[in-house]
Design a binder for these strands. Structure first.
Lengths: 246, 246
DNA sequence: CCATCGTATCGAACACCGTTCTACGAGGGT
DNA sequence: ACCCTCGTAGAACGGTGTTCGATACGATGG
């Protein structure tokens, strides 16, 4: 997928001809629109205009908008798989999982639509499956039951995709209208939390400063580490220990 | 919110009159549609038909579809807050967090649209804020820095909402068309994983059986426990320990 | 009892979306 | 030269959220 053959792209220059596409150009332009303007901007009409053709032509390559997004995510996930391949060879499997998860998250941050759609997907396309497999292979090296491994991989993937999808949401319009920078706006929000008062909102009051200066990537990594610390603990206890709460 | 005053509901019976609404009835019927038929089914036309009135009337109470969903989620979150209030008084703060998270997740399972929209939200409505506060107050009882507390609550919320949003997606149409029961379909999927072969897909092969019999609630709880185990570990190390990776 | 005025309801229209139908060009094989 | 398949494309359909202007209701004040 990520390494497909070259495509004819466009008709050469021979007089006035009709537009000529290929699955690769369609996917490429679709991804370009998604990257530039986000998921809602990917309409068949916008894509057709970009391809210099008619709307209905797209349906020759793709049978619905969902399938278009599906193929686009598969394509991107394929690239991530290639990029993260070197990360599986470290000695500590949990460190490897961490590295892969962070890399995946990075891509989600770079392409918000990607994380958004991974969530919508049942996640059973080949490349998503391969990512699941890759994480799972690391966990196979730990002393865990199959059930524990299955649960752990599922949880990690859910966490990564969940946080990414959360971050993918467009910022509140109050921010867009304010014209403030990100950190200025966070400072305003922090101040608002501080003013909530320590009686009824002791926690918000207490962490207002953290809220005001927080970095999304730090928050993500910190939660991921909690998850992986718990996992390490579970592995140290060994596969015999109970999987359920007391 | 959750306990608002009674509404006039509908005009009595005096001849042929025009419909009469109120914010409460609008929200109530909207939630009813969402519960019965899911988020895409909530259209202004469907809602208007249900209210026995015209489409444009709804705009008197709500200025957009997003605001309608926002108010609906606030309403439901208000109810969850009331229901989970008793859970904050246990001796172990982490156990309390667990109980609250599970209750919240239950509501997300009961109302898929609720989790879906919580994700879309910046989560800064009063009742969402109150839920954040409630979880945070528990964590304030642990020996953690404000930053660790802030990160932990954010991660837990992200995890809960993320898994819920994942589960909220409609099942693949292959399942709907198959006419199989859930467990029968899972068995088919498990078999498919098993057949992937242990050479190229050792992990999928290895956990195929777990996949075939897994329960979504178990998977959720198991990941939540990993997260909370990591958190407990962090608290035991004390607030002095480093928050970042070495 | 009537005129007034703000509140609330509603029908019709607009712009846009995904999708489908149908017709029509271009190129290669025979 | 023909045909036949592969792609392209215009126009339309049914649906959506949203807006506009007209209109009715119900309380208020004379």
């Amino acid at each position: 997928m990520a390494a497909a053959g070259a495509a004819p792209a466009r008709t050469p220059a021979r007089g006035r001809q009709r537009a000529s596409h290929s699955l690769d150009t369609v996917l490429g332009e679709a991804i370009a629109i998604l990257d530039e303007s986000g998921e809602p901007a990917l309409t068949f009409r916008a894509l057709a205009a970009r391809l210099g053709g008619g709307v209905a032509s797209i349906y020759w390559y793709v049978s619905s908008r969902d399938e278009l997004l599906e193929k686009a995510t598969e394509e991107v996930m394929g690239r991530v798989l290639v990029e993260t391949e070197p990360l599986v060879h470290g000695p500590d499997p949990i460190a490897n999982v961490r590295a892969i998860a962070v890399a995946l998250f990075d891509e989600f941050v770079r392409r918000p639509w990607f994380g958004q759609f991974m969530l919508r997907n049942s996640g059973m396309q080949p490349n998503s499956m391969a990512m699941f497999e890759r994480l799972g292979q690391q966990l196979m090296r730990l002393d865990l039951t199959p059930r524990q491994q299955f649960h752990a991989v599922s949880s990690i993937v859910s966490y990564v995709v969940g946080v990414a999808a959360d971050l993918a949401e467009p910022p509140p319009k109050e921010f867009l209208e304010s014209g403030l920078t990100r950190s200025e706006f966070l400072e305003v929000l922090g101040q608002r939390w501080r003013e909530l008062g320590p009686e009824r909102f002791p926690f918000a009051h207490h962490v207002a400063g953290e809220m005001a200066v927080h970095d999304d990537l730090d928050v993500f990594r910190s939660g991921l580490d909690l998850l992986l610390d718990g996992l390490r603990l579970q592995a140290e206890r060994g596969a015999g220990a109970s999987d359920a709460a007391p």
